[in-house]
Structures are given as C-alpha cells and as structure tokens.
Amino acid sequence: MSAEQGVEAVDLQAGYGRIEVLRGISVAAAPGEVVAVVGANGAGKSTLLRALSGLIAPTAGRVRLGGADVTGRGPEAIAAAGLAHVPENRLVFPTLTVDDNLTLGAWTRRRDKAGLRERRERVLEYFPRLADRLAQAAGTLSGGEQQMLSIGRGLMARPSVLVLDEPSLGLAPRVVREIFATLGRLRTEEGLAIVLVEQNVRAAFKVADRATVLDRGRVLLEGVPKDLLGDDRVQQAYLGGGYAVS
C-alpha cells in the first residue's frame, strides 16, 4: 500500500475557481501496480489526474512522486520528475508525424540521444502498429492508434508513474483489450506505477490490482476489483446496464 517510489495523493483537494471538485482524496499506486479509479461523470476522476500532473494546483493536501513532495509544481516539472499523464482524448500533435510525437515525448530527456533511440525501439515493441506509421501525420491515425501513440509518447520520457485518462474512450472492444493488455505488460516489465481512470469499469477491473471508486469528489470504496465487483453499490451504479463484457 505504501507508495514510497510510486505516486501518492494525500487528502487532495482541488477544483476550478470556486468550484470544488476534489474534496479530500487519498489514492496511491506503488511500482508494479495498476490502480483503477472509477466513478460517475463529475466524480472528479479527470480532475484527480490533472492535480497529480500539475495541470491544476491543489488547494489542499499533498502529491508525492517517487518519495518527493511535488505539490503545487507545474506540469513541466512533474513530467521531468517522472510522471507521464496520458490525457483524455489522446491529444496527439496532429500535423507532426508519429515519429516526431514520440521524439517530443522525450522532451525532458532530449539531450540523451542514445537513450532516445533505445526508448523508441522499446515503445515500438509495445505498440508494433505504430512502427508502420512512423512517417504519417498523427492526426491521420485511427482512434486506437492515436491512443497507442499518446501512451507511447508518455513512455518516451522513461516515467516511473503513468496516469491515463479514459484510454478506452470511443474505441472498439478488441482495441481496448489490446491496449489494456499492454498496460499489464508495462506494469510487470517496466515496473511502472499506473493510475487508470476509466468509465469502462469491467475492462479496467480486469487489469487493475486495486481499485478506487470516487463519488462526488470523495473516495466511496476501495479494494480489490474482485470484491468491488460483488459490491451492490458498484453493481448498481456502474455495471447495472447493458455493458458489453469485454
């Protein structure tokens, strides 16, 4: 449970202007661990990731990364400290090529040319589909490929922590399985600490070691996915409808 080397939010509060979205959330992911964060729209999932990566400044609480306190630092500093945030809607650089997107992913380590090449090889091993598209403009990729590129871009900086905002959004179940399987590999082979925000609860729970359910800015439940799946509240709230089991 301790996240000495991973990422840890302690009693985190944050919001936009006067609107308070996170009302004291504690979440942690240790190296080699996938933690799923689920919850309804507006529960604060994306805001949690934005506060972790420094896109918004927390109003209270702490963020620790690799044991160091990074609370209130900007996204550039937090990226350099080893956290890669794969944003909602992928946000690839559309007119730049796939290769350039990857190169810019390593911006914080751009002086290490040898490391860059090696890292690129590794990313293309995880996402072989990108290897055929290196010279193509990122905006012309399919949604699934853009998601792979967005994750690959994040990996280029050799992060110790990977946080992902709804990587399954708008993707076919087969592609979701492929991407989530790769997340599982990244956990075991790279020892990454992964925080996975998802609406697709079933897919997320399959890969996750632990899960946190958010509700209106607070932690509602925490535990092992298997137990949470049996919880009535989770069943009703997130799995009750006609979700396709992927």
Binding site: E76, A79, F93, T95, L104, W107, T108, G154
Partner: peptide
C-alpha cells in the same frame, strides 16, 4: 497545436 499535451511532455 496541443498546448495541454505540450505541457504534459514538459
């Protein structure tokens, strides 16, 4: 093109 993503890569 993507100011938010640019900040996220540093």
């Amino acid at each position: 093109e993507q100011p938010v993503a640019a900040r996220l890569v540093g």
